[in-house]
């Protein structure tokens, strides 16, 4: 089970025009979509938001993944809907608020579906975020699959010793987690200790401003994308703000 989760967590790089864009362009695009989603105030505008999100998602061949993410946030959306209704908002208003939330989720997801953790790290470096922060981000993502493998092996080992995790009353079930969580934490600590040694051995912190082998470079496609994105967005946002 943990194995499947580890697989799901992995970023899948697809060769599409959207994946190939400079991560900064993808970030800008996401910010634009986010702004549209946030400002949408009626069902027509919301339909436009989904269309605007749908185009890059389709180009990135990631519509299905995006829909899956939206489906996951559906429960939460329904809660928003229920709360709104409860506080006496009219049906239409509640629907608009709920759909707006879904639009925001879809818009932000475009970035994470098309941008690898590696590219996110580049963008973080480009923004000159503190080195420790960027490094912590990178390693925590990098080690997710590793810890998932640890988890699988620990669960296998304890089940082989007769542990039946989903048996008994709720209290018992929580107690059943102890033989899994303790080795997981101990292993994570051991790993982070070794990680710290290896960082030190490779000169981490030698200079206050480390360099980067790769620099982010805007290519023709990126400028082309901006040429389409900026006017289209400006048009939409003026309409959304009611200035059109």
């Amino acid at each position: 089970m943990a194995h499947v989760m580890a697989e799901g967590f992995k970023f899948r790089y697809l060769k599409t025009p959207v994946h190939g864009l400079d991560p900064r362009v993808k970030l800008l695009m996401t910010a634009m979509l986010f702004a549209l989603a946030l400002l949408s105030s009626n069902l027509y505008q919301e339909a436009l938001v989904f269309a605007a999100v749908g185009v890059p998602a389709a180009l990135a061949r990631s519509l299905k993944r995006l829909l899956r993410i939206a489906a996951l946030s559906l429960t939460f959306s329904l809660m928003i809907f229920a709360v709104n209704m409860l506080f006496g908002q009219p049906l239409l208003e509640s629907a608009v608020i709920t759909i707006r939330f879904l639009g925001i989720v879809a818009a932000t997801s475009v970035f994470f579906v098309t941008t690898s953790p590696d590219e996110i790290e580049y963008v973080m470096r480009w923004f000159r975020l503190p080195r420790d922060f960027v490094f912590a981000f990178a390693t925590s993502i990098r080690f997710v699959p590793v810890l998932m493998m640890d988890l699988t092996q620990i669960i296998d080992a304890q089940r082989s010793r007769g542990l039946e995790m989903d048996r008994g009353n709720p209290v018992r079930r929580i107690r059943n987690l102890i033989p899994v969580l303790i080795p997981l934490i101990v292993n994570a600590l051991v790993r982070s200790g070794e990680l710290a040694e290896a960082m030190e051995a490779r000169g981490y912190g030698a200079v206050s401003r480390p360099t980067s082998m790769h620099a982010l470079l805007m290519k023709k496609n990126d400028y082309a994308a901006l040429l389409v994105l900026v006017p289209a967005w400006s048009l939409l946002i003026t309409y959304f703000l009611g200035l059109l």
Binding site: D150, R159, S160, R161, G162, E164, P183
Partner: peptide
């Protein structure tokens, strides 16, 4: 069930730290 099978077939995995708690 895994538990019933394990009662008769005992597995000891490679990494001791994956089971000691």
């Amino acid at each position: 069930s895994i538990a019933r099978l394990s009662r008769r077939v005992g597995l000891v995995f490679q990494n001791s730290d994956h089971q000691i708690f």
